[in-house]
């Protein structure tokens, strides 16, 4: 299991390749990548991500451990950035390795649902008009109920 919290950009291809390579008993590798989205094109200057050093790593590790307890997984990677990001930049990725694809897909969705509202990150959108904190969505909280 690898938990990485960093400010610097990451190379998705390199991370995915490193995660997937050298496994002979894992039939399925699933990856998900989150990207800074500008809904009204050109309006978003940046996305600033604040986090709680120490608790962030502990919370992500706990979420990954939960996933390993619930599905048959060979490995888990969670990588999440903080700091100032611009539209199109990759914010985070998760990867799961399992013998079968169902475990890999479901665990990846579980990881995403939990790290949206249980890992201590806060997003702030910066536009030409000013900056505002992104409000948590009820649907993100509701998404946890299905697990």
């Amino acid at each position: 299991m690898r938990i990485i919290v960093q400010e610097a950009p990451f190379d998705f291809g390199q991370q995915a390749q490193a995660f997937a390579s050298g496994r002979q008993n894992m039939g399925a590798i699933v990856t998900f990548t989150g990207v800074v989205r500008d809904d009204a094109s050109g309006a978003l200057t940046a996305m600033e991500i604040e986090h709680y050093p120490g608790m962030t790593e502990a919370a992500l590790t706990a979420i990954a451990n939960d996933a390993c307890a619930r599905w048959s997984l060979g490995d888990v990677l969670i990588l999440h950035r903080y700091g100032r990001l611009t539209p199109g930049e990759m914010i985070m990725m998760v990867a799961t390795a399992a013998r079968h694809r169902r475990d890999a897909f479901e665990a990846a969705e579980f990881l995403m649902d939990y790290l949206k509202s249980r890992a201590p990150f806060w997003k702030r959108e910066v536009t030409a008009e000013g900056a505002s904190w992104v409000a948590a969505k009820d649907e993100d909280e509701a998404a946890l109920d299905r697990w």
């Binding site: 709680y52 949206k116 890992a119 201590p120």
Partner: peptide, 10 residues
């Protein structure tokens, strides 16, 4: 002890 708004990761 830490206080914060609901989290918005991912």
């Amino acid at each position: 002890v830490a206080f914060f708004p609901p989290m918005t990761g991912g």
